[in-house]
Simulated assay, not measured.
Amino acid sequence: MRSARVYDEVSDDDGTRVLVDRVWPRGMRKEDPRVGHWLKDVAPSTELRKWYGHEEEKKAEFAKRYRAELKEEPAASALADLRDLAEEGPVTLVTATKDLKLSQVPVLLQMVGK
């Protein structure tokens, strides 16, 4: 499993691209191939996302709170769907976040275990 920005061009080795943001990325059409599947329920809640603000000093606490959210519905079902996709073949998690290291993607990669 890998990660990329949703604005990056599709690569031959991307496999299934999965948008893991709660909000649709600016300037993207629904049929844009860079998006792939949209699993918005696996994304952090709006409240958590706004609190975090991608601030480096909040990263550890964000990860802890986000893991807790992923254990509750509907996020737990969306995470199970993501795991199922990963079992079927290569998956690339995509996000509109500018800095992938400060996004939810590292937590998801850890939770999926691929």
Results as ranks from 00 to 15, higher is better:
55 E>F: 05
12 D>K: 13
100 L>Y: 01
43 A>N: 05
88 E>D: 13
98 K>W: 09
92 T>D: 05
38 W>D: 00
39 L>F: 15
46 T>R: 14
68 A>Y: 06
77 S>W: 00
53 G>E: 07
13 D>P: 07
70 L>S: 10
83 R>Y: 13
23 V>E: 08
61 E>L: 09
109 L>I: 09
68 A>D: 08
98 K>T: 03
39 L>K: 01
68 A>S: 12
54 H>W: 10
31 E>F: 05
65 R>G: 11
64 K>A: 15
69 E>T: 08
34 R>C: 06
34 R>G: 02
36 G>A: 02
62 F>E: 06
93 L>V: 05
80 A>S: 06
76 A>G: 07
7 Y>S: 10
66 Y>K: 04
25 P>L: 11
42 V>G: 11
76 A>I: 01
63 A>W: 06
10 V>F: 14
62 F>D: 08
46 T>L: 10
51 W>M: 10
32 D>V: 14
26 R>V: 00
12 D>H: 14
15 G>V: 11
45 S>F: 08
93 L>N: 12
80 A>Y: 05
65 R>T: 01
62 F>G: 00
54 H>N: 13
22 R>D: 00
48 L>N: 07
79 L>P: 07
107 V>Q: 09
50 K>Y: 13
87 E>T: 07
51 W>P: 05
94 V>D: 11
111 M>E: 15
33 P>L: 08
107 V>N: 10
57 E>Q: 13
5 R>N: 11
95 T>M: 02
59 K>T: 07
15 G>N: 04
100 L>A: 00
110 Q>D: 14
4 A>R: 15
85 L>S: 03
8 D>Y: 15
38 W>F: 04
44 P>A: 04
114 K>M: 11
61 E>N: 04
2 R>A: 12
12 D>S: 13
96 A>K: 08
32 D>C: 06
20 V>C: 03
111 M>H: 07
94 V>E: 09
39 L>I: 00
101 K>V: 02
59 K>C: 04
5 R>Q: 02
86 A>C: 15
58 K>V: 04
13 D>L: 07
60 A>S: 14
107 V>H: 11
87 E>Q: 14
111 M>P: 05
30 K>V: 05
60 A>H: 05
43 A>M: 08
23 V>Y: 12
46 T>Y: 03
89 G>C: 11
27 G>P: 01
73 E>S: 11
49 R>E: 03
109 L>C: 02
69 E>F: 06
6 V>C: 05
70 L>C: 11
64 K>W: 09
7 Y>V: 13
23 V>A: 11
51 W>V: 09
91 V>R: 01
12 D>Q: 14
57 E>R: 13
6 V>N: 00
80 A>F: 08
102 L>K: 08
40 K>P: 04
59 K>Q: 09
7 Y>G: 12
88 E>S: 15
106 P>K: 05
108 L>E: 09
114 K>Q: 13
24 W>K: 00
65 R>K: 14
8 D>T: 10
47 E>N: 03
106 P>V: 08
52 Y>G: 06
55 E>R: 15
46 T>D: 15
73 E>D: 14
38 W>L: 01
19 L>F: 02
78 A>K: 03
72 E>T: 12
52 Y>P: 03
106 P>D: 00
38 W>N: 02
